[in-house]
Design a protein around this nucleic acid. Structure first.
Lengths: 194, 194
DNA sequence: CCTTCTTCTTGAACTAGTTCAATTTTTATG
DNA sequence: CATAAAAATTGAACTAGTTCAAGAAGAAGG
C-alpha cells in the first residue's frame, strides 16, 4: 500500500486537508489490503461486525436478497469510494460482492472511529456531512422511484452515472432501479428508437 | 417554554446525559416556540435555510410535490421527535406541514451546530448515530417498497406505527407507501375480510 | 342539528411492469 | 479460435396498481 496514496487522498478530501507524515503512516496501519475476484462475495447477510471497504480499483455492489430469492442492489461503489453497511457491528442484512476484479482496503467500524478520533477530526463537520449527503441522496432516490416511471429513472441513472452504464451488466442496473431485467431491456430498445 | 422540559429530555436522550442548569438555560435560548394550525404549511419547496422543528405536541409531515402535482410523504414526526430537511441551508425540495394542530420549537441548522459545539458534544458519537439510524431506516424502506407488495407494506406500517394509523388520514399513509389512496382503500377492504 | 367540507369507498377501464420460456448476442476461457 | 457460459432480447399472458368518476360516510363549525 505504501506505493500509492489513494486512501490518504480520500482522507484529505473528506476529512481535513492537513495530514502530517505521521498521520499518513498511522492511516496506513489501519487498513488491510484485499483482492477480490469478479463475483466474489465479500460479506453476506447475517455476518456481524462487517468492514468498510475503500476501493482502490474495481467495482462493488451492496445488495439484499428478499424472501423469494430476488436480489436488490442498493449501492454501487467504484474507485476512491467507500462501501459497507452502516449497521455494523450489528449483523447485516446485506451482501457485498465484487462486480469486477477489485482491490480494496478494509477497516472495521471500531477502527475507523478510533482513527478519526486519533487524527483529531473531532470538529465533526465532515463525517457527518458525508453521511448527510448519502441520506439526501437515498431520500431523492426513494422519491424518484415512487414518482417517476422506470424509463425516466433509467435515463436519469444514465445521465448521472455514465461510467456505471458501461461497467455494470444491465440486470444489475435493473435491480438498482427496481425493475426486472427484461423490462429494462424493453425500455432500452424503446429509447434507442427515439 | 420554561415550564416544561421536553426539549431538554430530548437532548439528554440523544446527546449526553449530563447537562448543567447552565446548559439547560442555554438550550432554551436557542429554540423558538411556534403554534401551527391543522394543515398549516411551515416551509415549502424553494425556501432556503429552513429550520428544524422539535415537536412538543401534534404531528407534522415532510413531503414533496412532483411535476404532475402529486404529493409524496417522506416522513412523519410526532411528539418528541425532530423533523426538517437535512439539506439546509441549501434550498429545500420539500414542504413541511402540520397535519394536526401542532406546537413545535424551531432551530436553524447553524444554531443547532453551534449549540452542540458549545455543549461540547464534540465526541460526535451521537448526532452521527441518529443520522445513521435514519439512513438505515430509509434504506430499509426503499428495499421494502421495491421488494414487497403494497399490502405487505401497509401491514408492516400498521405494525410499526399503530398510533400513526389512528392519527393520519388514509391518503397520507397511501402517499407514504407509494400507492394511490383508492388502492389503499381497496387493500384495507380486502384485509378486513380476512 | 343542519350544512358544508373532508375523507373514504367502489367499480370500470386502463397501463406499467412482471413472469416465463425460448432465442440470440456477447463475453470469457481452455 | 472454438466452445461454453453469461447477458440481453423478444413475445405472450398475466397482475398489481392507476385513473377517473360518482356516491357514501364522517367530522367539524356556525
Amino acid at each position: 500500500m505504501e506505493n500509492d496514496n489513494n486512501v490518504i487522498r480520500f482522507f484529505r478530501r473528506n476529512f481535513t486537508s492537513q495530514l502530517s507524515k505521521e498521520d499518513e503512516k498511522r492511516i496506513f496501519t489501519y487498513f488491510k489490503r484485499h483482492k477480490f475476484e469478479k463475483k466474489q462475495l465479500v460479506f453476506m447477510s447475517g455476518d456481524i461486525n462487517t468492514d468498510h471497504f475503500f476501493i482502490e480499483n474495481g467495482l462493488m455492489r451492496l445488495f439484499l436478497i428478499d424472501k423469494t430469492g430476488k436480489e436488490f442492489n442498493l449501492l454501487f461503489a467504484n474507485e476512491n469510494q467507500i462501501i459497507g453497511d452502516l449497521i455494523t457491528p450489528e449483523p447485516t442484512d446485506f451482501n457485498l460482492e465484487a462486480v469486477e476484479k477489485t482491490t480494496a482496503y478494509s477497516i472495521s467500524e471500531r477502527n475507523f472511529q478510533e482513527l478519526i478520533q486519533s487524527l483529531s477530526l473531532t470538529h465533526q463537520s465532515n463525517p457527518q456531512n458525508s453521511l448527510r449527503r448519502s441520506y439526501i441522496k437515498i431520500q431523492k432516490r426513494l422519491v424518484s422511484i415512487l414518482a417517476n416511471t422506470a424509463e425516466e429513472n433509467y435515463l436519469e441513472f444514465r445521465k448521472t452515472y455514465p461510467e456505471l452504464i458501461q461497467r455494470l451488466p444491465q440486470y444489475h442496473i435493473a435491480s438498482y432501479l427496481g425493475v426486472s431485467a427484461e423490462f429494462l431491456s424493453k425500455i432500452i430498445a424503446r429509447t434507442v428508437k427515439k
